[in-house]
Design a binder for these strands. Structure first.
Length: 278
DNA sequence: ATAGGCCTGGAC
DNA sequence: GTCCAGGCCTAT
């Protein structure tokens, strides 16, 4: 469940479970996870206290008393599950952070693609990350010079975490739909107005998802997917113009969009009128 | 830019 | 069985 809003919800859970607690062990239960962390490094976490859980983009960092941090990336299907003292581990538990009070924080991940790493104290951690999608520093002014150098279509560029951190395949489609920008538009051809709309739309989509604060993947119910305007809705009617939502593949990933997203990205009517009467 | 790899489960 | 999946890396 891994875009910025879902990772933030997971980080909040990790905070509730682990902050201020002493780690007794980190168990790596799947070979894919064992491959990422040498056993000795995992063992060295015993005795550390989790002092904070930070999130940057889709990465979580559990800050430890030694100054080191445990970095966790959920990739496609990772999530946290709290484990009460004495309770069995949940399905697909791939790594488990055992705490001194008997509780634990389990990394559940059916596909086992999640990545764990221990970073030394003082390591430079966000060298490869642009501003968070929710950061006030993510602005049209930031985007202008960055997009000017990119000839690729805007949709795959939005997935580049160096451009903006935290957007994944779902919210990239959603934000472009909301901004009425054709996902195939070359990034460097977006007009200044389109860049402004894009930033606004990214913020909007993130804010709504953060408020929703829920797990998409876990919920499993198709009805939950209704909260997306276009993602996963190929063939359904666009809720804005009524035409059929389309699916294309860009950079190997599905993009959902509607023809009411214009090619030039600057001729569209402004986003749906504000509700607030003036 | 595209294909393949990492893994597994769910939909068909 | 086949195809697809919210991510991201490498090779071509």
């Amino acid at each position: 469940m891994p875009e910025l809003p879902e990772v933030e919800a997971a980080a909040a859970l990790a905070r509730r479970v682990a902050i201020g607690r002493v780690i007794t062990s980190l168990r790596l239960l799947h070979p894919a996870q064992r491959r990422q962390l040498p056993a000795g490094v995992a063992r060295s976490l015993a005795g550390e206290v989790v002092v904070a859980v930070e999130r940057r983009g889709k990465v979580q960092r559990l800050r430890l008393t030694s100054g080191r941090c445990l970095e966790v990336h959920f990739r496609m299907t990772g999530d946290w599950a709290p484990v009460a003292a004495g309770d069995p581990l949940p399905d697909h538990a791939r790594a488990v952070l055992h705490l001194q009070d008997g509780t634990a924080l389990a990394l559940t991940d059916p596909r086992a693609l999640s990545v764990l790493a221990v970073r030394p104290a003082g390591a430079r951690l966000d060298a490869d990350l642009g501003p968070d999608a929710t950061d006030p520093r993510f602005t049209a002014d930031w985007l202008a010079p960055v997009l000017a150098r990119r000839r690729a279509a805007i949709k795959p560029v939005l997935l580049d975490q160096r451009v903006v951190a935290g957007i994944g395949n779902i919210y990239a489609s959603e934000a472009l739909w909301h901004a009425r920008i054709d996902p195939r538009t070359s990034a460097h051809r977006l007009t200044a107005d389109a860049r402004v709309r894009l930033v606004r739309s990214v913020r909007h989509v993130m804010a709504v998802a953060l408020r929703h604060g829920e797990r998409y993947y876990d919920s499993g119910s198709p009805a939950d997917a209704r909260r997306f305007a276009v993602y996963g809705r190929e063939g359904e009617r666009c809720r804005r113009c009524g035409r059929a939502v389309r699916r294309i593949v860009q950079a190997g990933r599905s993009t959902y969009w509607c023809a009411c997203q214009t090619k030039r990205g600057d001729r569209a009517a402004p986003p749906p009128p504000a509700r607030r009467p003036r």
